Amino acid sequence: MNDKKNRKIDPFIDGAIPPEFISESIRKHSAKTNIGGHSLFLGQVREDKKGDTEVEAIHFTAYKEMAINKLAILREEIFSKHELVCIHLYHSLGKVKKGEICLFVFTSSKHRKTAMEACEELVERIKKELPIWGKEIYNNQSYHWKENK
């Protein structure tokens, strides 16, 4: 097995994922000339309205050790199923304000369709399988635990 594929990676970033971090990640891949397609997913905190209240932010928490272990297994499964060159995944912890990025998934392959299918599968599995939770914080300072959809 390739160490790059099955290693344990800590995907967590404190706070929002800066746009500069995302653009730098993309820029670094221009030197990898065996890649023909990339697929990116950016999860952003949206301003949901619930009655008279609006979401101002989401506070993310995780069972980090379990999430890191599960992510290693998930990465290996995705690499085994799809012919990928690389997978990158970052998720916010702590408070992320509306309009800010909280999830960055980036897959690369020789062919675009492979990268797109792998990215979509990875996003869906992250939402269902990783122990990460979000508490929506409203403009009246109340909160509600968010359901992953």
Results as ranks from 00 to 15, higher is better:
Phe79Val: 02
Glu117Arg: 02
Ser80Pro: 05
Ile68Thr: 04
Ile78Asn: 02
Val123Thr: 09
Gly43Ala: 11
Thr114Ala: 03
Leu122Gly: 05
Arg7Cys: 08
Ile26Gln: 10
Thr53His: 05
Arg46Cys: 05
Val45Gly: 07
Val45Asn: 09
Ile22Pro: 03
Leu74Ala: 07
Phe106Val: 06
Ile101Trp: 02
Phe12Glu: 04
Asn2Gly: 13
Ile87Phe: 09
Asn2Gln: 13
Tyr138Asp: 04
Phe60Trp: 08
Lys97Ile: 00
Thr114His: 04
Lys127Ala: 15
Phe106Asn: 07
Arg75Met: 11
Ala62Gln: 09
Ala72Gln: 02
Ile17Ser: 05
Lys127Cys: 08
Thr33Glu: 13
Lys98Asp: 06
His88Pro: 00
Leu93Lys: 07
Pro131Arg: 07
Ala72Phe: 08
Val85Glu: 05
Leu93Ile: 10
Lys110Gln: 04
Thr107Glu: 00
His29Ser: 07
Lys98Pro: 01
Asn139Gly: 15
Trp145His: 05
Lys113Leu: 13
Tyr143Leu: 00
Ser108Asn: 10
Lys128Thr: 03
Ser92Asp: 15
Ile22Ala: 08
Asp10Tyr: 05
Thr61Gln: 09
Met66Tyr: 10
Arg112Tyr: 01
Gly15Ile: 13
Lys32Glu: 09
Trp133Ala: 09
Thr61Leu: 04
Phe104Trp: 11
Ile73Phe: 04
Asn2Trp: 12
His144Cys: 12
Val105Trp: 01
Ile126Val: 15
Ile73Lys: 00
Asn2Ile: 00
Lys149Tyr: 05
Ala67Glu: 06
Ile73Asp: 12
Thr53Phe: 07
Ser30Lys: 14
Ile9Glu: 02
Arg46Ser: 07
Ser39Gly: 05
Asn148Val: 11
Trp133Ile: 09
Lys135Met: 13
His88Met: 00
Ile17Ala: 01
Glu83Val: 01
Ile126Phe: 13
Phe12Pro: 08
Phe12Lys: 02
Ser142His: 11
Arg75Lys: 12
Val85Lys: 11
Ser142Asp: 14
Ala115Pro: 01
Leu42Asn: 07
Trp133Leu: 08
Leu103Asn: 05
Lys128Val: 01
Phe41Ser: 10
Glu120Gln: 14
Glu24His: 14
Arg7Asn: 00
Lys32Val: 03
Arg112Gln: 11
Lys146Asn: 15
Tyr90Lys: 03
Gly99Pro: 06
Phe104Gly: 11
His38Ala: 03
Ile78Cys: 04
Ile126Glu: 14
Val85Asn: 04
Glu117Asn: 08
Ser30Ile: 09
Gly36Lys: 10
Val45Trp: 03
Glu24Leu: 10
Leu74Pro: 10
His82Phe: 14
Glu65Asp: 13
Asn2Pro: 12
Gly37Ala: 04
Gly15Pro: 15
Val55Arg: 06
Arg27Ile: 03
Trp145Ala: 01
Phe21Ser: 08
Ile68Arg: 15
Gln141Tyr: 01
Tyr90Asn: 14
Leu74Phe: 09
Gly36Thr: 14
Ile9Asp: 04
Glu24Tyr: 14
Phe21Leu: 10
Ala72Lys: 05
Pro18His: 11
